[in-house]
Simulated assay, not measured.
Amino acid sequence: MPVHLNHTIVHARDNRESADFLAGILGLEVGQEWGPFIPVVTGNGVTLDFATAPADRITTQHYAFLVSEPEFDAAFARIQRAGVIYYADPHGQQPGQINHNDGGRGVYFLDPSGHGMEILTRPYGGGPALAAQDGTSPLS
């Protein structure tokens, strides 16, 4: 059996705020609260379980989400509408821009707890793009 990532815990100052933020940007649903966790399930079945933690226990992490071109357009529009500061690079040196790495598009932004979020349309190294959920073929 191949190994698949099933879930990971994302520490947040406010688990509801962070789950709602990410789900809103990505166009995903927030799941039912389960104990201390508020889940957001990605399209490939990986669950991000947001858990409230004291600020001094939150270690900033990076989460990258591979999306189709139409999904990128929708998420990027939500980022802009929400007034979220975004960057073309992970170090925040290119504010207000997106990148075109590996023939795709990508953008970085912070969630409410300071985690680095990234959406990209091509995996690093120029791997294949994702097909849109409507069944259209990916851009080449």
Score class of each variant (00 low, 15 high):
A74Q: 10
Q80L: 12
E71V: 10
F21A: 09
G116P: 09
L120S: 10
L110W: 02
I25C: 09
D134N: 09
Q80W: 06
L28G: 14
H100V: 05
T136K: 13
L66E: 11
L28W: 05
M117V: 12
F109N: 01
F109A: 03
R78W: 02
I119V: 11
Y124L: 15
G24I: 03
N44V: 04
G135N: 04
R122Y: 04
A19V: 04
P123R: 01
G92V: 02
I25V: 15
A132G: 05
G24E: 04
N99R: 00
F76D: 04
S137C: 08
G106D: 00
M117I: 14
P90M: 03
H62V: 05
N44Q: 08
S113I: 05
A64R: 03
L66S: 10
R78C: 10
M117L: 15
D56H: 06
A23C: 08
E118D: 07
S68V: 12
A51L: 12
A131E: 06
T47H: 10
E69S: 13
D20H: 11
R57F: 07
T52N: 05
P112F: 06
G114V: 05
G31K: 05
P138Q: 04
S113H: 02
H4M: 14
E71S: 14
V3T: 15
A53N: 00
V10W: 00
N101C: 11
R81M: 12
I25D: 04
V107P: 02
E17K: 15
L130F: 00
N101K: 13
A129R: 07
T60A: 09
P138K: 05
F76Y: 06
F76K: 07
L26W: 01
P54Q: 01
P2I: 14
H7T: 12
H115F: 03
F21E: 08
N101F: 14
P54D: 15
N101I: 12
G83A: 07
F72P: 02
S113C: 02
E33S: 11
F50W: 01
G116N: 15
L66V: 10
S18F: 04
H91V: 14
E33H: 11
N15P: 10
G126P: 07
H91L: 12
Q133A: 15
G126N: 00
A132T: 11
Y63D: 05
A23G: 11
G96Q: 04
L110Y: 03
